[in-house]
Design a protein around this nucleic acid. Structure first.
Lengths: 366, 366
DNA sequence: TTGAAAGCGCTAACAG
DNA sequence: CTGTTAGCGCTTTCAA
């Protein structure tokens, strides 16, 4: 006998035509169709709406399907149909409960409508945001969700291109009315105005009679929303004739940072603040725990105001005053707006969502 | 003039041949190629390794590329190449810091290797896990990560099929040596043995002299790992002659639940427990805060032991004793194991990762 | 170093 | 109700 080429390459012609030339061992629609004695398109139709095929055909397809372990290939499906059921979302962070709840709201709303959520966290880095955005856009998502209105220029270009190609692009967790007529952000915003919150925080403390204030900013220097709240806080307080010191929390564990800042506040040489507002509740809680340990009375010696209204703050004694945010609502609302936009083929509608400053023991006036 | 059909349907025939028959307005490889005066395949090669094309060709391609806003279509790319760079991961929950850190570890490890993470949360529901698994498998991921070793039967079938098709499947957050020879789990496990932890928790409290114990189980009934810790805790404690009451935390906010359980412990008719172990740190912290409020001294009146070692527990006074877990390590290790497995074409290797019971003030013996 | 042809697995469009 | 044909955008294989 003559030697045949490497034995993987024998005559080949046999096995159901060109069976395994590039395939990857997975069951395809055609294999299911063959087993059911129909063509792929019929199975494809059955899969989307079983009622469009004849009952007995349906039965055979069902049979073939369940004995095969078929899993539809989405790459192929989306490529062929051109419609994507993916929504790409970029959040600064998933560990933080603030964004986790938003993700939950988004996820739930989309899941119910048959969309899938491709999610990634940027760690507050704009550079990483751009990279991730580029990668996620490769999936040609039906919509894109990003956090905030500040982005790297490359990211902005990608967002603009996507929007021009008809993909809804939504910026969440911020909402800022466009300036005069200049460079109004061209993307839909769903969130709230952080400067408004900063002002409300200042007014709350001023109303309780405080005239020497501190604002403790986030240690995450890229968290511009925290800075905006701080800036507005400072402006209002100073306009009212109060003194304001702005401190920046050290990076790392937020509880620890809060403790540290509290210790710092107590040893300040300048006139000692009688009230402090924090960039988030974790910082504020850390500060409260430190106060407890150091014998600083809250609110008598120092009033403490947080941001975010996390579960923990409500459990402290005294309970922490804070700003309750539409965490879940942002996600839910965004999901809804996205779905509407996708269906209508129009950009999504912007929305300003409500927040509430909740006054509790930690800022009670005597 | 004769009326033309609805004015969207005028002659149309013009635009660059069959241009818009099914296309979707996005820039394709071919458009870039046309602009650069080459064919698509050349651009494709350039994109993967710029050095394989002639320098001047490369220059023109680069030029065409950057002036076009081209974003590669991954659907098409993966379909054609048959290799996926997606890793699908299913976690019970993203809000909880315990899993968020694992996600972070996974994400970082995969990102560095050019893989993308498709992540979804099951809310501890096996049914949802199965649905999500089915959906995620449609992307034909390079590997699959699920949480725990218990799954719905449909999910198990999917996992088995995937593994048989050569896709590494890893179960994280658990590690249980296979029983005699019976139904050893066929999937790679990366995590730790929860019964071991439960035993260590009991031994720790017994060693401090406690003989009347309580175990506060998670209110999430599907969290079998918490139950396993509880069962082991009970067995060891009873074997040592101690009394053990098992309580179940109410569902809902964990801090609140912890408070509630603490109140319950103090009004129990049975012999009052002198030490309580909790299914997680959030419950334990809620209990500590309630104790503080109710004047129960920790550890003198009641020793408290948590699980998870969350940042908050360390800030309380006294600091919470807890079990420090390889949260991040599970993610990192899994990423590494996955990558090795994908490259080697072998199943990933199982691993038991270390944890530590950290003794602090809340369980200090007098 | 570049191109032509074929095909990944699926679905749109039009028959029948 | 079902099949045929073509093609989504990219990559593989082979040839030049």
């Amino acid at each position: 006998m003559s030697r045949s080429p490497p034995d993987t390459a024998t005559d080949a012609a046999g096995t159901t035509a060109r069976q395994a030339r590039r395939g990857h061992g997975r069951v395809t629609l055609r294999q299911v169709a063959l087993a059911a004695g129909v063509t792929s398109i019929t199975v494809s139709r059955y899969l989307r709406d079983a009622s469009v095929v004849a009952p007995d055909t349906a039965a055979r397809i069902q049979q073939a399907l369940s004995s095969s372990g078929y899993v539809p290939n989405k790459q192929a499906g989306l490529l062929a149909s051109g419609v994507s059921n993916i929504v790409a979302a970029l959040l600064p962070n998933l560990a933080n409960s603030i964004f986790a709840e938003t993700a939950q709201g988004l996820s739930d709303g989309l899941q119910a409508a048959g969309f899938e959520l491709l999610i990634a966290s940027t760690g507050y880095s704009m550079e990483r945001e751009e990279q991730l955005l580029r990668a996620l856009l490769g999936w040609h998502p039906a919509a894109v969700v990003v956090t905030g209105r500040r982005h790297a220029s490359g990211a902005l270009k990608l967002m603009t291109d996507a929007r021009n190609a008809g993909t809804p692009v939504i910026e969440i967790w911020d909402h800022r009315v466009s300036r005069p007529a200049s460079k109004a952000s061209p993307f839909t915003q769903i969130g709230f105005n952080h400067a408004d919150v900063g002002r409300a925080m200042a007014l709350h403390l001023l109303a309780a009679g405080h005239r020497t204030l501190a604002y403790v900013d986030s240690g995450v220097s890229e968290d511009y929303r925290a800075h905006e709240r701080g800036t507005a806080f400072k402006q209002v307080a100073r306009a009212a004739g109060a003194q304001v010191a702005v401190l920046v929390a050290p990076p790392g564990d937020a509880f620890e940072a809060g403790r540290h800042v509290m210790a710092q506040l107590q040893t300040a040489r300048q006139p000692r603040a009688t009230a402090a507002a924090f960039a988030n509740d974790n910082l504020a809680c850390g500060a409260m725990l430190q106060a407890q340990r150091a014998g600083v009375r809250v609110p008598q010696d120092l009033a403490v105001l947080g941001f975010g209204d996390f579960a923990l703050g409500r459990q402290l004694t005294p309970a922490l005053s804070s700003v309750q945010l539409p965490r879940l609502a942002i996600g839910q609302h965004t999901a809804q707006a996205l779905l509407d936009a996708i269906r209508m083929g129009k950009p999504a509608e912007a929305a300003s969502l409500p927040w509430t400053l909740v006054s509790r023991g930690s800022t009670a006036a005597d």
